[in-house]
Every structure is written in structure tokens, then in C-alpha cells.
Nucleic acid binder design. Structure first.
Length: 311
RNA sequence: GGUCCCGUAGCCAAGUGGUAAGGCAGAGGUCUGCAAAACCUUUAUGCGCCGGUUCAAAUCCGGCCGGGACCU
């Protein structure tokens, strides 16, 4: 049985992944599998820039609005669910179009990442957190050095989250993170064609600013208020998303609305930059820079041509 | 016209004689269970301009330019 082909559309936020992935799905008889850590959640529509029913234009979408923000979620769960969705699409003879903004989640599909049984232990994490508060980051890092020297060498002592996760894996799971490195290779489950979309930096940043303004005009404030009414607080993981956390802090009286908007734009720019750094690592990715084209049509035309050639 | 204060990176800003803190923005990067997260690296041969004093000046002196306050 031939490996199923999948098409990956990746790029920084606000580049236009949604429109491109839907256009691709329509042209090649595909269905979109979202690879986005925020669009997964229910009730968070405007702030996570979910495609509207109108935008979807009849193209089925998977992994969008399927998780309650209260549920614990992780990349391991994403991997399992997304792979099932891809298998389902392939079984129906359709093309899975992975629309990706979350690098780690994309890696979970493209690489042989074995997460094993769930070993997340919040109590243990808290214990390590307390230890670090009292003894310092260096002391925590030294503990890791004792059980998983390779991981300790890779993780900066200040990166407490990672140090704690590595300790959790080594001490609780008995499987040092370093063991995963050996299986860190390209997955042979899929033959992925990688399409990267981007813009010149100033244009991308302008698009981000404009989109944030649009989200506010579309009712982001009301959406966040609604989530607060449902009982969500800034402690909830899903509320750590850009646009949500700033507005929550604003409502809590930490700063005025004007400042919240400024922070949302700035944080989104930072995020876009990190995404770009992540996606640059995919050498097989072919980039299409929207700034090189006079209009969306010619931009898409070039992508179609590339896709036709590679098919 | 006079008196006083201020002028340090794109922005905020410390530094009052010994060879330019820090923060923000920007740029680059890391990445196997919170990833829209977390973390790392990097940014002034230069302190408004010109001259002087000194072994040594962002720091002291003089002049000029620019901004502000007050007085007439």
C-alpha cells in the first residue's frame, strides 16, 4: 500500500494559511486538518482566528473546536487525534491538507515521535516547582544532571518548564528524554509535500496589526467576557492564548484597554517570529512570499502550479 | 533680552573624571506531554555640535545649536 500523500500548509500567523489551505482542498479534493493549538478549543473562535463556515466554503475541517478548554490537552493527544483524522480522510480517497501554525504539533505528525503512556504528574511538577523556588534553577538543573545528563546538557537551567518535564520523564517514567533522540527521524507514515507561506517582515507585521483590530471589531472583547461568564480564568491553560490573556488581565484591572491592544499586537509579532524560526528548519518546504505577487490570485496560481508539478 | 534646567541606541533610561548599567522595541536561535508556552544569544569605538583643561572627559570649563520652565 502506497504511503498516503498529505499536503502541509505552514507559515506564521496572519500570513493567510486558512485561505490557502481551503483553496488547496477545493482544488485537489481535500479536507483540512488544523494543526493549531488554539483553534482546537471550543468557544474560542474570534481570538484563535478560526475559519468561519463561510470561509470553509463546504470544505470539511478537522481538529477545529473539538476540545473543551477545561480538558487537559497535550501534543500527545493531538498526535493521536490528528493521525486518526488523516487516516479517515485518506480512507475516503481525499487529500489531507494540514494547516499548521503550531510547530511542535506538526512535528508530531511528520516525525517519529513516540510519547508513550501519559506520565504527566501535576503534583510532582508542583513539588519540583517549589524546590526550584527555594533552591534555585541551578539546583533543579543539577538534579536533572544526575538522572539524565544528556538532557541536562541540552536544556538551559533557566528553562524551568523543560527541566521539570525532563525530570518527570526520567524519574517518574524511567525513560530519559534523551532516549527519544534515537527515534527522532522523519516519519515514513506520510509522504508530505510542504508548502510555506509568508510575507516580507514589515508587511507581515502590518497584517498582524490589522487582524488584531479586525478581531476586536468582530467582538473579541465579548468573546472573552463570555468565557469569563463560563468560569474561565487566566489560570486555565487555554486562556494563555494571545488575545485572551491580555484581555483577561485588562479586565482584572492590570492595565487599560489601549495597553491590552498594544500587547496583543506585540505578542502576536513575537509569536510569528518564533513560528518562522521553527518552520525554517524544514528544508523541503517550498516558500511562497505573498509580497512577491501583485495579488492573491497570482500567488495562488504559483502554488497550484507547484502542486501540479509535484503531484 | 535675562536666569535656570535638560540633550546618552528606534524609545525609556543609569552613569558627575578611569574607558558607556538596565528595560522595551528590533534581529538571530532552541524545541518530545501547558508550545499562541518556556528559554537562550545579540544591539552605541559612541554620550547634541565645536573647542579647551587633563595621563585620562558622557562626566570639568567656554561657545554654539535644539527643547523646556520662569523672569522682564
Amino acid at each position: 500500500m502506497a504511503r498516503p500523500d498529505i499536503l502541509v500548509v505552514a507559515g506564521p500567523t496572519a500570513a493567510g494559511k486558512t485561505a490557502v489551505s481551503i483553496a488547496m482542498a477545493k482544488r485537489y479534493g481535500g479536507e483540512v486538518v488544523s494543526c493549531d493549538s488554539m483553534q482546537l478549543y471550543k468557544y474560542m473562535d474570534i481570538g484563535s482566528a478560526k475559519p468561519t463556515a463561510e470561509e470553509m466554503d463546504g470544505v470539511p475541517h478537522h481538529m477545529v473546536g473539538v476540545i473543551d478548554p477545561r480538558e487537559p490537552f497535550s501534543v500527545a493527544v493531538y498526535q493521536e487525534m490528528a493521525k486518526a483524522a488523516i487516516a479517515d480522510i485518506v480512507s475516503r480517497g481525499k487529500l489531507p491538507v494540514i494547516c499548521g501554525g503550531t510547530g511542535l504539533y506538526l512535528n508530531a505528525l511528520l516525525y517519529e515521535m513516540d510519547f508513550g503512556p501519559s506520565r504527566r504528574d501535576d503534583a510532582y511538577r508542583r513539588e519540583l516547582e517549589d524546590f526550584a523556588d527555594k533552591e534555585g534553577n541551578e539546583a533543579l538543573h543539577a538534579r536533572l544532571e544526575g538522572v539524565d545528563p544528556a538532557a541536562a546538557a541540552r536544556i538551559h537551567p533557566n528553562n524551568r518548564k523543560r527541566v521539570i518535564r525532563a525530570l518527570e520523564a526520567a524519574e517518574l517514567d524511567g525513560r530519559p528524554l534523551d532516549a527519544f533522540e534515537s527515534v527522532r527521524r522523519k516519519s515514513d507514515s506520510y509522504h508530505a509535500r510542504m508548502l510555506g507561506i509568508t510575507w516580507d517582515r514589515p508587511t507581515l507585521y502590518q497584517r498582524i496589526d490589522d487582524r488584531v483590530d479586525q478581531m476586536l471589531a468582530d467582538g473579541l472583547v465579548e468573546e472573552v467576557r463570555g468565557l469569563m461568564d463560563m468560569g474561565f480564568t487566566s489560570d486555565d491553560i487555554a486562556m494563555k492564548g494571545i488575545g485572551y490573556k491580555e484581555l483577561l488581565d485588562c479586565f482584572a484591572g492590570l492595565y487599560p484597554m489601549e495597553e491590552a491592544v498594544r500587547l496583543i499586537k506585540r505578542n502576536t509579532r513575537h509569536y510569528a517570529k518564533r513560528q518562522l524560526t521553527w518552520f525554517k528548519r524544514y528544508e523541503e518546504m517550498v516558500w511562497f512570499n505573498g509580497s512577491d505577487y501583485p495579488d492573491t490570485e497570482s500567488w495562488l496560481e504559483d502554488m497550484y502550479e507547484w502542486a501540479d508539478r509535484r503531484s
